[in-house]
Design a protein around this nucleic acid. Structure first.
Lengths: 115, 115
DNA sequence: CGGCATCCCTAGCGATACTG
DNA sequence: CAGTATCGCTAGGGATGCCG
């Protein structure tokens, strides 16, 4: 999902810019998992049930490049790599919480609120 | 709130459910444009600079099916169709605003000419 | 353990032309 | 005006295998 130059208005729109960062099937779920603390690759792979290592690797790398999370490697055997949110990443919790709030109001099994 | 495995299930996690709704390149931008009031197909096509009629049509239809927006047709010549947000759609403004807020904090170098 | 490399496949999007 | 009908592309993602 990429905005081209023809979408100039949208390119400078903060909403669209944020959407770019959190788009992608797994991105938000990774960030949410990291809100509870530092995680290793394997932990994320297991908690994000069904994700392929390639996809997880790609998402982690792009999030690292965007400064949302921090990748910390340890020179050990077996190797250890820990992922944690940066301040820029932790700040996304606000977005996530508003999405959670919305999801609870409108999208859960309880249909009484749905119209 | 603690994040357990159940929260990662797409069927249960409100965050994932919300992400499903607002995913797609244009979805959020359509909703954003509708927050300012009722819009016609042509208006959206022009304000969403670069969108193809096919894509706009698809997005509008799926958003209608999800109950986020309302499609109202008028038996006139030339035909008129008006799109507006439902309550479920207007409620997404909270998510959009938190995204806008985040985008302004972290993602915009130039804050002078933003939407 | 934490990944790349490789191959493949599909949803989503774009462009254009056409129609009720 | 408000869409469909085609066609084609490609980025994202899944599956599997291998390696330091």
């Amino acid at each position: 999902m990429e905005l081209t130059k023809t979408h100039l208005d949208d390119a400078i729109c903060p909403v669209a810019r944020t959407a770019e960062i959190i788009s992608g099937k797994w991105t938000l779920l990774i960030i949410r998992d990291l809100t509870s603390g530092v995680k290793r690759f394997n932990q994320l792979e297991r908690s994000l049930c069904g994700i392929s290592p390639k996809t997880l690797s790609e998402r982690l790398r792009s999030l690292e490049e965007e400064g949302v999370l921090l990748r910390r490697t340890f020179a050990e055997v077996p190797p250890r790599v820990e992922y944690s949110l940066t301040e820029k990443g932790r700040d996304l919790v606000g977005v996530i919480e508003s999405m959670r709030s919305y999801g609870k109001r409108w999208l859960c099994d309880d249909q009484t609120n749905q119209k």
